[in-house]
Amino acid sequence: MQYNITTEGTATVLHLSEQLVDADRAAFDTVLSRVLSSRPPRVIVDFSGLHYMDSAGLGLLLTLRERARAAGAEVVLRNPTGAVRDMLQLARFDTLFSVVNA
């Protein structure tokens, strides 16, 4: 997993690239702390650069959802493509998160 964090208005944007898999667990956890530390009202996860995610990656997004909820932040998943979009679709994550394409 590669990432960088930007802001858009009051929202914090987490741009993920390469892949999101089981091995990213610890790093993702750290990234989450960083993302939520400014207590943003909204967290946008941008998947434009992410080309692969496995079932463990889904688990990481669930952790994000739980921690964001605890911190009072709304989570938006943005621009999933290809295999990542298919994986989110398989798990019907559109019913758990807002998913947008911009």
């Binding site: 889904l58 669930l62 679709q89 398989l90 798990a91 019907r92 994550f93 019913t95 758990l96």
Partner: peptide, 13 residues
């Protein structure tokens, strides 16, 4: 079609 929310995430699905 295998799609569906994984089990155990939320009740009421």
């Amino acid at each position: 079609d295998g799609s569906g929310v994984p089990l155990g995430i939320d009740s009421g699905i």
